[in-house]
Design a binder for these strands. Structure first.
Lengths: 185, 185
DNA sequence: CTACGATATGGGGTGCCACCCCGTTTGTCC
DNA sequence: GGACAAACGGGGTGGCACCCCATATCGTAG
């Protein structure tokens, strides 16, 4: 289960994998999800074919780039499970939104994949979804959330807001609050 | 005011303008906002330089493509002003969302422009914004909407939902309702 | 009806990109 | 150290947005 290092891959494979991720991180931070894959390969000192072999899709690259950040979010989710269920869920949604909006490209990895499968090994969407489901279960049981609300819908709402407000935490926060409070008084 | 036809342009300019829009309409319907501008020009039987001269930005092309559709929406907004303020606003938001999600590329024209100015003559965002403001004023006065809610935020929420759910009216509707009702019971 | 100047055109260039083919290099294991 | 699988990467293909500038077309003044 704990695939800390793919032992079955050749040494140069691991080396290049690291180099690609190291090159990708600052470029993704600057350019977001639309980062030029060619440039990542160039910066890593690696042929573009190699990049495409290591990461069959843009999403696969982003998912690995954001592995740590998402792991961090997951741990934060675990912490919030210990507090008030209603407040915990809202705090989680807000912190999730802010992280997504402040970290260029992250939203792309949090979105539900159009294809069904958990394509990537570092499935960012899956990890965040699980944490959300957990927090929602508690909030639902405590009656802090309208019954019938789906965690997937809630997550879709957060990613939609994040996607449309990349780099603008204030606006994203405002829209999230609006959505949580509802339009009617 | 009524700029039905730019009289100051040469005849061939108008002819090519029409051809470009006629070519763009089906292609945008198929490919959405990411339509290839080269292909539009090719299909219109026009050099790509001409397309770029007629439409200095992708947004400018989309805005003209959706002029009629947005005009239609605006009229629908006028109708809704005559009914119940609260229900009218919610109906408006829902119809707006469904139209945006079902009409590929439309959301791009409804989004607030990153740049400040009303860049395009056929300012789709502006038209829809005005209708939204009007309906919100009435709903606020009737106490059907939480005070302090901004029409721009509401519109941003609708476009965010639409952008992330292009081609999926059911999901978009669900998220909109979720946002209108709020998360808490 | 003609000639002329402003207006508009478009072929082709530049620089970028994703993605892939296939001959070559590099690890690895015996 | 040798053989074989695994990995690599230069370079090709096809596509795109956007622009330059020599050429063609339009509308009008005479």
């Amino acid at each position: 289960m704990a695939s800390s290092g793919p032992r079955s891959q050749r040494a140069d494979w691991q080396r290049n994998h690291e180099r690609l991720l190291a090159a990708a991180r600052p470029l993704v931070a600057r350019d977001g999800a639309q980062v030029s894959l060619e440039q990542v390969a160039r910066e890593a000192g690696v042929g573009s074919a190699t990049l495409h072999r290591h990461f069959p899709s843009r999403r696969a690259l982003l998912d690995e780039v954001f592995r740590e950040a998402v792991e961090h979010l997951r741990r934060r989710g675990d912490e919030l499970v210990d507090g008030d269920p209603g407040a915990g869920l809202l705090t989680w949604l807000e912190e999730l939104t802010v992280a997504a909006v402040e970290t260029r490209g992250l939203t792309a990895s949090l979105e539900a994949d159009a294809d069904g499968g958990p394509s990537s090994a570092a499935d960012c969407h899956g990890v965040v979804r699980e944490a959300t489901v957990h927090l929602m279960d508690r909030a639902l049981a405590a009656g802090a959330v309208r019954p019938g609300t789906s965690p997937d819908d809630l997550l879709a709402l957060v990613t939609a807001i994040s996607l449309a407000n990349e780099g603008n935490p204030a606006a994203a926060r405002r829209l999230l609050r609006l959505a949580c409070d509802g339009v009617r008084p």
